[in-house]
Design a protein around this nucleic acid. Structure first.
Lengths: 250, 250
DNA sequence: CTGCGGCCTGACGTCGCGTCAGGGTCAAGC
DNA sequence: GCTTGACCCTGACGCGACGTCAGGCCGCAG
């Protein structure tokens, strides 16, 4: 893909891509004979991360160090991005609530104290500060250990993890075949096991998030295909079980 | 208040306030004999709006035109800010969902298509574009009319609106006095009337938002005081009724 | 072979401040 | 009354992340 196409796809200008090239943040993996920039799928993946981190307020230089850190795998980035986005969500909710409070105060003819009105700005510092905090925390042992564990997944570990999930998937398909209802106790227990497995091995996955994944299993064809290849009807089955389990734990 | 205090309160640097002064975005309403900037409460209010709009991605010059527009009253700004924040909330949710999807895809060993991964960036353009859109839409008649209606609240209109809400508050306090349960049909109907009144006269207030307001009536002393001055126990009563009504309509 | 759109590389402009530099101000303590 | 240290002032330059030309090279449709 050449610059124009990438720019259109990612919703940025060509100039931005030029800039990222010059500062070494994202250099296309190839050039044509005429010097045209050629972007590979891997470049697009990187661009995606760049844009996410940028949106979250990181300076480009820091984005570069984050992405070029050889000790941070893709899953690590996804976890970080997820955390940062959830922070932002929380903060935005707080701001919405603050504005609603002001609306109501205004309607009633009450006026708020300045401290109160700025409090949502005051104790903020998350996104940008998150970078610093992370650097500081990056030095602590707890963090280092958790880093270690996820990063140090050897091929063996991966096979073990894969075996674990294969096991749950197999038991799901057995339950399906033997006519166990997807919203039954047994199916829900399997779903819960699935959730805990994800939390242990990949990322922190609460019931709410798990329910979201469940929906995806039937809404996105690729995830559907993944389960349907194991057994026909399994995607819908797992999806239902997962959502029933989420409802149960809520 | 002088610059340092304001800066600390609002969570910005002194330099930022200097900048806003120079570009005429926010000039303190007074100076001491020695030339020290003196910020009034009104200045703080303006600063608050400035920071909100800035956070939402508006260029400062545009913020200035928004705030200096004599045809936009405070309520108008609150409505706009509320709308923009909700847009942002939606967008951030979409991004969170996208990241979760990628996490799951990654865990399963599936890879997403580039189009898909960028779609949350692609069809975006809300916040910044919102400004443009607003300018374009600002020319349409429908918008102009709705502007007219809210802005054109004369003293008479205000009195009528006030009478309306006084009426509901009075009927609430009657219900309270005569022992009608706050989660009864009657109380909930009053709550619903309250909600529709707000929507008609002030801002669009859905059940969910109304429930939030209800919570505030007991959590924030000023709102509590407002209702308690009408009748003791009314704050809690209205709060319960409002939330019961919200639950009913959900 | 001639447009015409897309790509290239400088190079300068812009926005929203950060960061000194050089100097007055003010409340506190000696 | 005088110093001292924190806070304030006004330039003025710097910087990050691009926007915006300018001048020129592809590439392919007609």
């Amino acid at each position: 893909m050449n610059v124009g196409e990438v720019a259109a796809l990612a919703g940025v200008t060509v100039r931005t891509l030029h800039h990222y090239d010059r500062i070494g943040l994202l250099s296309p993996s190839g050039r044509t004979a005429a010097g045209y920039r050629q972007y590979s799928p891997a470049d697009l993946t990187r661009l995606h991360s760049v844009l996410l981190y940028r949106e979250l307020g990181f300076p480009l230089e820091e984005v570069a160090t984050l992405l070029d850190d050889p000790s941070a795998d893709p899953a690590e980035h996804l976890r970080r991005q997820h955390r940062l986005l959830r922070d932002r969500l929380e903060r935005t909710s707080a701001m919405v609530a603050a504005v609603e409070k002001e609306m109501e105060a205004h309607a009633m003819g009450i006026s708020l104290t300045p401290e109160e009105r700025f409090e949502v700005f005051g104790d903020w510092l998350p996104e940008e500060y998150a970078a610093e905090a992370e650097q500081k925390w990056g030095e602590t042992e707890a963090w280092a250990q958790s880093q270690q564990r996820t990063r140090a997944m050897t091929k063996d570990d991966w096979l073990r993890v894969k075996a674990e999930s294969d096991d749950v998937e197999r038991r799901f398909s057995e339950a399906l075949r033997s006519g166990v209802a997807p919203d039954s106790e047994r199916a829900m227990d399997l779903a819960e096991e699935h959730r805990q497995q994800i939390s242990r091995n990949f990322y922190d996955c609460g019931p709410e998030m798990h329910a979201g994944l469940g929906r995806m299993y039937v809404e996105d064809e690729r995830f559907t295909a993944y389960y349907e290849r194991i057994a026909p009807g399994l995607a819908q089955y797992v999806s239902t079980a997962v959502q029933a389990n989420a409802a149960r734990r809520a």
